[in-house]
Design a protein around this nucleic acid. Structure first.
Lengths: 251, 251
DNA sequence: ACAAAGTCTTTCAGTGGGTGAAAACCGGCG
DNA sequence: CGCCGGTTTTCACCCACTGAAAGACTTTGT
């Protein structure tokens, strides 16, 4: 936490990092404290960031992330880039099922949700676009972890596996088996491992070189449907997106 | 263009700004040149940005915007924040019409698309989430401009109005009339003013204090439907979103 | 109304991180 | 092998960054 930031660049980044989903707006003092810089420095730098558009300042004097930053960030290939090609397929999934549709990529030992379609009537899920989550619990997480590099898998398997419900897999050996099954079946199922009432079915999305770069999932009420009937649907969407990402001999 | 950036902060921002929709990946030299910094500086700073996750470096050595930056940027209230509350309404619009649905906000004298749902079968539109566009041509643009502060309207009206088609409004006086009509009707129509085959109907979204903060639109083929039938649909969605943004006495 | 406490803004001199020229490095190609 | 474009590293100078301190402004309590 209190890492003393050295370079100016790192301090600029620290000021952006100060904003979290839990605290999307900050007063100057809060910002200074979180970024680990003195108040005058924070004031000066914040003014510069506001001038550029990386931050915005509300009528209440509090700082928020600016639209300009969102604009350039939207160029992230694994962010909106991925989202753009995936969207039509996600739309289709949603339209057919009217359930939650999720798209995620792996970032380090966690996953980041890149897109999420939630109908008003689907099971509530506690995820957010741009939000992070552990890999070992969700459907998308298992799909991503099963195809992650060996060292990533090891790191996750050797660290304590947090339990969210009684059904969350916390035994490394059991998790190994599940991951093997995911690779074998081509899809992953998470049954009540995040919240007891939700079940998700996920499939891996492959980019160039057949490496897995993302995963899609459907999240339904545990009693609503059989995973076996959802799997083909999700897999088809995943394959469709993969095809768009790695155009082979088309066109 | 060649503004000599002074502060370190501005140079960091310049390096992010170097990435554009047209050039989402850059080599080190390109990055250095566009950001207006020397090569060693660019190298050093880029390494730092990569370490933090603001940039990513591909196997080809080229730099791209990193997912980490996208994560914090997703906290922008006018970006994903707005998107999140609007999404269900946009979904509904899409599901009913199966046409393009767009959500945009004003940023300076232009607009930025915050969300876009495009079915595979809808009219192709040349917009992109995170992309910019002028205010005087599109449906969302007219809706936003009509409710923008007086000085913004003046600046747009006094600058040359670029024509995209023969139907684009380029006469300031004519534009004034159109804007007045938009305010009177509560919705805006852009008929073939961007591309001749597309027509869009937009409605303003209001936040707290009844100020217009965004706009939604439907984009259809010029011959497909009558604006008059689409307007209520779009207005209903806009009102729904407005209601979520400025909770009055509900709950 | 007044004072006190808190938050934000501005100033200023000392200094440590930032800077680019230059040189070493690398991989591809004739 | 030797050239060439692009990338990485080094290094000494110097200027932008820094935080203490003081000043302005806002809010809260009595």
């Amino acid at each position: 936490m209190g890492e003393a930031a050295r370079s100016v660049t790192s301090k600029v980044l620290a000021m952006l990092e100060a904003f979290t989903p839990a605290t999307p707006d900050l007063s100057l003092s809060e910002l200074a404290r979180r970024a680990g810089v003195s108040l005058p420095t924070a004031h000066r730098r914040a003014a510069e960031l506001v001038a550029w558009g990386a931050l915005e300042r509300g009528a209440d004097g509090r700082y928020r992330i600016g639209l300009r930053l969102w604009e350039v960030a939207s160029l992230a290939p694994r962010g909106l880039g991925l989202r753009d090609v995936a969207m039509p397929f996600l739309e289709d999934l949603y339209e057919v099922t009217h359930e939650n549709v999720q798209l995620a990529v792996r970032e380090g030992l966690e996953l980041v949700f890149v897109e999420r379609i939630a109908g008003r009537h689907a099971v509530p899920v506690l995820t957010r676009v741009g939000g992070r989550f552990v890999l070992h619990a969700t459907g998308v997480g298992l799909a991503l972890l099963a195809h992650a590099p060996a060292d990533v898998q090891e790191q996750v398997l050797t660290a304590p596996l947090q339990a969210y419900t009684t059904k969350t897999i916390t035994d490394p050996d059991r998790l190994r088996e599940v991951l093997a099954a995911v690779r074998r079946n081509g899809y992953a199922v998470s049954d009540g491992q995040v919240t007891l009432d939700a079940l998700s079915v996920a499939a891996p999305i492959r980019g160039r070189g057949d490496q897995v770069v993302a995963a899609v999932s459907l999240v339904v009420r545990t009693d609503t449907a059989e995973p076996i009937t959802l799997a083909p649907l999700v897999q088809a969407a995943a394959r469709g997106i993969s095809r768009m990402l790695a155009p082979r001999f088309s066109g």
